Simulated assay, not measured.
Amino acid sequence: MITTLMKRDFYINAIYFLIIALAIPALYIIEMAEFYLYFGIMMGFLFNLFYYDHRNNVNRFIGSLPVKLQHVVLSRYVLLLVVVVGFLLYTWLVDSLAHNGLPYIESKTMSSIEITILFTLISIAISISIPIYYFVKSITTALAIQGGLLIFGTFTFAILTGNELITFHDSLLLWFFDLIEIQPIVMLIIISLVFLYLSYLLSARIYIKKAKV
Score class of each variant (00 low, 15 high):
G162I: 15
V84M: 15
N56W: 01
S127G: 14
L196F: 08
T4A: 10
R60P: 00
Q70I: 01
M110A: 06
G148S: 07
F61Q: 00
K137I: 03
F50Y: 07
L188P: 06
I145R: 08
E164V: 11
R205D: 13
I128G: 07
N48M: 08
F47E: 02
T154S: 15
H71V: 03
S203N: 05
T4Y: 04
I41N: 07
I115W: 00
K68V: 01
N59R: 02
A158L: 15
L80A: 10
I132S: 02
S64R: 03
I15T: 14
Q70N: 04
M187E: 04
Y133C: 05
N56D: 06
V78I: 15
D95K: 02
W92T: 08
Y207Q: 05
D9G: 14
S107L: 06
S199G: 09
V83N: 02
D95L: 03
A33P: 06
V73M: 01
N100L: 15
A211M: 10
T156N: 13
L118I: 11
F17L: 14
I115D: 03
F152Y: 09
P25C: 10
A14Q: 09
S203D: 07
N59Y: 00
I117C: 08
S75Q: 00
L80V: 05
Y90F: 15
S107H: 09
E106Y: 08
G86Q: 12
I41T: 12
H99C: 04
N100I: 05
G101Y: 06
A144D: 07
R76F: 00
L79Q: 03
K137F: 01
L69P: 00
L165T: 15
F152V: 14
N56V: 00
G101T: 04
V85N: 12
I189W: 13
K209H: 11
F135S: 07
F157W: 14
L198Y: 14
K7Q: 10
T4C: 02
I159W: 14
A211C: 06
L93N: 03
L121D: 05
K209E: 13
V67G: 00
L79V: 02
T167A: 15
L173S: 11
I189A: 12
L121K: 06
Y28M: 03
T141P: 04
P184H: 11
I19M: 11
F168L: 14
Y133E: 02
F152C: 11
F119M: 14
L79Y: 09
Y28L: 01
V94N: 05
E34F: 04
H71Q: 04
L172K: 14
T167G: 10
F47I: 05
S75A: 13
M43W: 07
E106W: 02
V136N: 13
F87T: 05
K209Q: 12
M6R: 03
I29H: 08
R205Q: 12
L37T: 11
K108N: 13
L102S: 06
R60C: 00
I151D: 10
L198E: 10
M42D: 09
L196M: 15
F47M: 09
K108G: 07
V67P: 01
M187T: 11
N56H: 04
I190K: 04
Y36H: 12
Y200E: 11
H99G: 03
V94F: 07
V82Q: 02
N163Y: 15
L74T: 02
F17K: 05
K209N: 10
S138F: 07
L88A: 03
I190V: 15
G153W: 10
L81R: 02
L179Q: 11
Q183A: 15
F135E: 05
H71N: 07
N163G: 13
